[in-house]
Design a protein around this nucleic acid. Structure first.
Lengths: 198, 198
DNA sequence: TATCTAATTAGATATATATCAAATAACTAA
DNA sequence: TTAGTTATTTGATATATATCTAATTAGATA
């Protein structure tokens, strides 16, 4: 099977992790979720600065947030970090000829993602065109971890991060073989099984 | 065993990998060593630009170079990439309390490294003070891969990247249990075995 | 020694970004 | 509705950095 890396995603991830403040935030969140003020306090930085960094971390899906009353808690998305660690080693298996192809695919995909997601990472609507729809789903599924089992509630919560209509999207995940379900437990399929355009 | 991460090293690595040109260089070198002009040609960038990026990649030990006649070939240090991929996942196991400790150690170490290595990464001289000496050796040993077997020639070549007196340094590696030797084959020891100060 | 090629350095420019204080927005609870 | 808390946005500033051209250095060879 061909090693396909999404260059932009990989670069964006590393760029984001290439800042000491952000890594410190990640380390703090590894212990458990925190709200903005707490992070600011622990790191001795202002609230706007923390907002700034959290936005970047959220852009690459390293953190996500959940509101409880008036306080927004930030969570670490561990699976994304694990995934990117894998991508890094995949780089070594890449044959140089694939570079151009990778760049092209990356570019097209980037455009679609940019069109259908707000800058906050919310899905505006589900694309009608199949190819684009699949790109959007693949994008969403990136934050899930291979081999991990998810309860239905958990999946719903995860999808809500992108769109309120989690039921439809969850169904699409199954239909297009991104995930499979057994006794109410959801799990990511291997990439070979995912729906492909054409 | 405690998870000890060198924050600065980790951040520097990711910062370096957070640039599309540099990742493209890494992908090219994954196929095999190349010289500067070749890289410049393939990427459509000027020679100075390539020099600039190679310097950064060299700073974090992702590439190293070897001269053949008049041409300098750049090699990918795959073990460093694998190692950093591991460090990334180690982040997740880090307990937040270790943050300060990590920062402090990082800072002290950084200073020592800065004092004893030139900005080209060459070791100026072996520190007399034991603690600093160990830091220097640990620094050098970072580019070797755990579990990999190295021939004596290979080790010598590797050490020459830092200092001409490879024999002394190779001996120190053994004395301080960074590596062990069996029938002329060298291998990295697990970190628990490494010499510790005090 | 003179000359060729490869690599680096210097200097310039344009762009990005980390940070803060002040203003604003979003939400809760009284 | 009003007050209080938390988060974000705005605007300013200082710093970093990706890229180029031109000049320089390093090493090989004729």
């Amino acid at each position: 099977m061909k090693v396909l890396i999404q260059l932009n995603r990989l670069v964006a991830f590393h760029k984001t992790m290439g800042d000491p403040t952000r890594v410190r935030i990640v380390i703090l969140l590894a212990k458990g979720p925190l709200h903005g003020q707490a992070i600011a306090g622990k790191l001795g930085l202002s609230a706007p600065t923390i907002t700034h960094h959290l936005k970047k971390l959220r852009d690459v899906h390293v953190v996500y947030e959940r509101r409880d009353k008036n306080i927004i808690y930030f969570y670490l998305n561990e699976s994304m970090i694990k995934q990117q660690a894998q991508e890094l080693t995949k780089l070594l298996e890449t044959r140089g000829e694939e570079l151009d192809e990778m760049m092209e695919i990356s570019l097209e995909r980037q455009k679609v993602i940019q069109n259908f997601f707000t800058k906050e990472g919310k899905l505006k609507n589900i694309p009608a065109q199949r190819k684009k729809k699949l790109m959007v789903f693949e994008h969403m599924v990136q934050g899930l971890s291979m081999g991990k089992k998810y309860g239905e509630k958990e999946i719903n919560e995860y999808i809500k991060q992108f769109h309120d209509d989690y039921a439809t999207i969850r169904r699409e995940f199954i239909i297009n073989h991104y995930m499979y379900r057994e006794n109410g437990i959801y799990e990511l399929n291997p990439e070979e099984m995912w729906a492909k355009p054409e």
